[in-house]
Design a protein around this nucleic acid. Structure first.
Lengths: 197, 197
DNA sequence: ACCTGAACACCGTTCAAGT
DNA sequence: ACCTGAACACCGTTCAAGT
């Protein structure tokens, strides 16, 4: 029974330490602070030991992004309370983006290939949202229609609001009422109105 | 009368050539392709001539971002036809993001200071949207309320949909109906329904 | 005022060994 | 199988001059 382990957990300790060190450097000083030499130093290995675990620097960064997407799913799935609503899911999305801005920006870079199982981690997180949206549609809180499409709509807003906030493009207004969480609530409120026809 | 010139037009030709060369390198090969040496070569000057016009590399990149925001405003303002609707404005926003993905990503980096008049260029573009949103609210196409806040909502969705599309996070669905333009239209359709109470 | 060439420190990557 | 140290090409930045 205990022989089956999560796929992503199959990692040598050194590899995991390298990813952790790189993520830490990223959080502290942005992408420019992530040098393979500093990563190796922080992980207690030589400056080119990373090449035994990743093809190049880009692959190490992709591993950070994949880890971040997986953690997002884990945080949601590990809740013992009631299932999160689509609205709460999006508030969590915004919250994590604002808490780890550099990881957020890194996660949504334009990655070349389907590197480091990044696609699987992303679709798993998206699946949880689609389920929550379907539930909200059944309750009449969201308009009916393709749940995938509705999920993309609400996530598009949450993602854009978070990204605009991080890049400082949401504070032009004097009242300061346009923070990402407010916009998420606004959208859900309007969608409920639209659902009531 | 003709003595007053646009502020951003006050630039030495070399400075402008450096920005153009850097933007071109960015479009072709992403941020990693933008090296000061290559920029100088493309502009026909030495590899450190940029330091006579910009404090460092970051300031040159910020100048590209500011130019991109200004152009966005110019494109909108230079139309001789009828004033663009808020919906068309957002379609144009998505269109430009997909056409120049690297510039789009660069524009929404987390810039340190208010570098290179980036803030002014951004608020000018935002002002055009607020005007269009106010107009749509008067016509009953959008719910009433603070126009700034409503503008942030629609731009948040357009921005997020474009960014998700660029990073490949919008193609998970099988039907492929979740492209950014569709999401923009969906939002405006739902908002019109909500406006009709 | 604007530009150049040499120089320095640093980084990604490779390679020949080492256990 | 995993790691190390030296080496190479490249890049951002600085500086002393040059016109």
């Amino acid at each position: 029974m205990s022989t089956s382990a999560p796929i992503l957990a199959v990692m040598t300790p050194t590899r995991e330490a390298l990813i952790a060190a790189a993520a830490d450097l990223l959080d502290r000083g942005g992408p420019e602070a992530v040098t393979l030499r500093e990563v190796g130093r922080a992980a207690g290995v030589s400056h080119n030991a990373p090449y035994k675990h990743f093809a190049d620097k880009s692959e190490l960064l992709a591993a950070i992004a994949a880890r971040e997407l997986s953690r997002q799913s884990e945080i949601i799935a590990a809740r013992d309370g009631p299932v999160l609503s689509a609205r709460d899911l999006m508030h969590g999305y915004v919250r994590r983006a604002l808490r780890y801005p550099e990881r957020f920006k890194l996660t949504f870079r334009r990655w070349e290939r389907d590197a480091a199982g990044l696609g699987e981690a992303a679709s798993q997180a998206h699946g949880l949202l689609v389920a929550a949206v379907t539930c909200a549609q059944a309750a009449g809180e969201l308009p009916s229609g393709d749940p995938e499409r509705m999920s993309s709509l609400v996530r598009g807003l949450a993602h854009g609001a978070a990204d605009l906030a991080l890049s400082g493009h949401l504070k032009s207004g004097g009242k300061g009422n346009a923070d990402p969480d407010t916009l998420v609530d606004d959208l859900f409120d309007y969608l409920r109105l639209a659902a009531a026809k």
